[in-house]
Design a protein around this nucleic acid. Sequence first.
DNA 1: TTGTCAACTGACCGAATGTTCGGTAAACAA
DNA 2: TTGTTTACCGAACATTCGGTCAGTTGACAA
Lengths: 202, 202
Amino acid sequence: MATPTPTRQRRRGHDPESVLATAVGVFNERGYDGTSMEDLARALGVTKSAIYYHVPGKEQLLSRALDRALDGLFEMVADERASSGAAIERLEWVVRQSVRLLIDRLPYVTLLLRVRGNSGTELAALERRREFDRFISRLVTEAATEGSIRADVDPGLVTRLLFGSVNSITEWYQPARGASADDLADALLKMTFGGLRVDPAA
Amino acid sequence: MATPTPTRQRRRGHDPESVLATAVGVFNERGYDGTSMEDLARALGVTKSAIYYHVPGKEQLLSRALDRALDGLFEMVADERASSGAAIERLEWVVRQSVRLLIDRLPYVTLLLRVRGNSGTELAALERRREFDRFISRLVTEAATEGSIRADVDPGLVTRLLFGSVNSITEWYQPARGASADDLADALLKMTFGGLRVDPAA
DNA sequence: TTGTCAACTGACCGAATGTTCGGTAAACAA
DNA sequence: TTGTTTACCGAACATTCGGTCAGTTGACAA
């Protein structure tokens, strides 16, 4: 009755969502601290002050973007497939999902991986990220205890190097030209779990 | 005869080198754009203007730091061991040397890996870095052609994931508590070349 | 004792920063 | 027609920025 058309064809213009999307893009190009509100305004095609009509300020943009990445990570570890079954299977699943999430939310995860703790917002994000890292580290330790991955390298080190590879995706992946998330995950798992070297005995 | 003591016990105080070292440390903590000259001055225990007695300005500090990392990389690829012998051997050597350089010049390389191209200085550094990356990529391709590393993953992808692991060292390595460069390189090569998974047939 | 000089300080500059505010044109509702 | 809302502009705000410069300090040489 009221609200005749629930979402009437809203006239051209921005909204909090489109501002966030553009902002994250610019943040990733120039870095958060290297981006001025003037830069954002230019990218949006409006003046600086128009931005404040849609969002409360620069730091809120960062905060919302980081949450979008972190929420994805924590939804992942909350899944049953991350906590039941053989540790090696869970680890593979988590790595695969991480690659998928990285690509699904590329700009948001990219931003997260570059945070250094310059503000309360950044420190809070860093702490949530460390919690995720601890989860992965436990998984790797379990897989080593299980005997399914090599035990001659410290599990903490394995975790870091493995996710060093995974996270590097944000540094070079181009959605337009790159492989699909699944293809990328396949290649990454083949490499990290199977190893680069061809068996001379084969 | 002249200059009675070539380097007399110079009185307390800073010099271009110590300013650079401190600056790079702060740049890595807060990010280059997130660091003000006031921040630097505080870290050095002097006023802002004292910094300009030793170095020409903020961007020169960045430039000198990046050169220190890039010069190391190019000295490495200029070595004979990077260009003669089996490709797989050269690749292993370059990876090992990269780990060593990363740790030897940790703060400088860390800074280099975070550059995004916001200024002429940064763009020039990015271009030199890309040249290094191309060298590595060629090496990996040769090793694949040789048949010494797996051919079922694109060489460009292998390069990126491999050096994703290597470069991640800057994100977590702590000189005081961490392993030596050689131990780290051993573990990394074991993992990346040998693979994580334990052979079920073994 | 005087002079030199490296190493700094403190006051300052113009430009850029993130943010606020008063106003306004266009679309829509009554 | 009138009033309201949406989405914006332009000017201004206080603050911070990188950088300059005239002067001061203290160690040392002559």
